[in-house]
């Protein structure tokens, strides 16, 4: 466990030379939702780790955590609207008392369940049976591993995280994750600094080869995710004098082909109090869904939410750079990406 935490001041948002909506308009594009296929629930900021790039500012000291009542409202929504996919995140969502009920009841309702699992939480008290719990519920596990080497991973996620993560991956493999049909284990790569991720397919091949030969670990897919210029990563950009250059890099790499598949077009994000947002990043910036829309989970209504205008900011350039970025990794083929010169 870490001894001290970065102090997050109420910071001003990231700035880009051009507004995001203006940039879209220059390409005759507009960002509107298409459907609500995914309910992404952030059950709170409590986490056993305190990673340097964490956009949630999660840590072991955070106390914001979803109540049983709100978790029940989520379940009622999942059942009533037959939500296709429930995506549970945090913090470390496993530390929430309602976590296992959210998973098993949603599965019983026929919903696909994805858990953003940080691997090391498996070694916290009472969590040792997580691999078996995930397997029994056919949960899709998505886990961050910034790199296949210790130095880069520990630099971002904390001392000792890499070794624990490898051990956790081996345990997941041993119950069938990444090796058996239907037990999906996906890894998430994000750059360990102020640069963009490599092309997803090329990096996935590297990760698969290195993880197998170095550690005998198997997994299904690698998602490459761009570091979003918000919260702790924005703080790092500012302290290291990289903000302007990084924002310009995102802007220069704007790829209009990513817009159609941006994750906010198909999901609604819910915070630990039950408030609704267009995505987890907007949630962290307190940018709730458009004013005239349902604002809390108790008012959830897909018909109203389906065609809503997405609330955007300069941070959205993190989702449209290069191959794009979402919770499911890149959203456009790199071959469709050419440097944008219209900025």
């Amino acid at each position: 466990m870490i001894k001290s935490l970065p102090i997050i001041e109420q910071e001003s948002p990231a700035r880009a030379a051009v507004g995001f909506d203006e940039k879209l308009a220059r390409h005759n594009l507009e960002l509107r939702a298409a459907s609500v296929d995914v309910l992404q629930v952030n059950v709170g900021k409590l986490c056993n780790q305190a990673c340097k790039h964490c956009h949630v500012d999660a840590s072991p000291k955070r106390t914001e955590i979803m109540s049983v009542e709100t978790a029940e409202q989520i379940l009622a929504t999942v059942r009533r609207f037959k939500i296709p996919t429930l995506d549970i995140t945090g913090g470390a969502p496993e530390l929430n008392a309602s976590f296992r009920r959210l998973v098993s009841e949603s599965r019983a309702a026929g919903t696909r369940v994805i858990v953003r699992h940080n691997l090391t939480v498996m070694f916290e008290p009472g969590q040792a049976d997580l691999p078996e719990f995930f397997r029994d519920n056919r949960v899709e596990v998505v886990s961050s591993l910034p790199y296949f080497l210790q130095a880069q991973t520990d630099a971002q996620r904390g001392q000792g995280v890499f070794d624990k993560s490898i051990e956790a991956l081996r345990r997941l493999n041993s119950v069938g994750y990444g090796t058996e049909d239907g037990l999906v284990l996906n890894l998430v790569y994000n750059p360990t600094g102020a640069f963009l991720p490599a092309a997803q397919t090329a990096l996935e091949a590297d990760f698969k080869r290195e993880m197998k030969t170095r550690y005998d670990v198997l997994f299904n897919n690698l998602f490459t995710i761009t570091n979003m210029p918000i919260k702790r990563f924005l703080g790092y950009l500012r302290r290291s004098g990289n903000e302007e250059r990084y924002m310009q890099k995102l802007l220069d790499a704007f790829n209009p082909a990513t817009v159609e598949n941006l994750m906010c077009r198909n999901l609604i994000s819910v915070d630990w109090t039950g408030k609704l947002y267009d995505c987890d990043f907007n949630q962290m910036l307190d940018l709730s869904v458009e004013e005239n829309m349902p604002q809390i989970i108790a008012e959830f209504n897909p018909e109203k939410l389906n065609d809503r205008r997405i609330v955007t900011g300069a941070h959205c350039f993190g989702c449209t750079a290069g191959g794009g970025s979402s919770c499911g990794g890149a959203v456009a083929d790199y071959s469709s990406f050419h440097l944008d010169v219209t900025s």
Partner: peptide, 12 residues
């Protein structure tokens, strides 16, 4: 340096 990192190389 940037493009090596952005194409998946590491410092070693």
């Amino acid at each position: 340096t940037q493009s090596s990192l952005e194409n998946g190389s590491n410092i070693e």
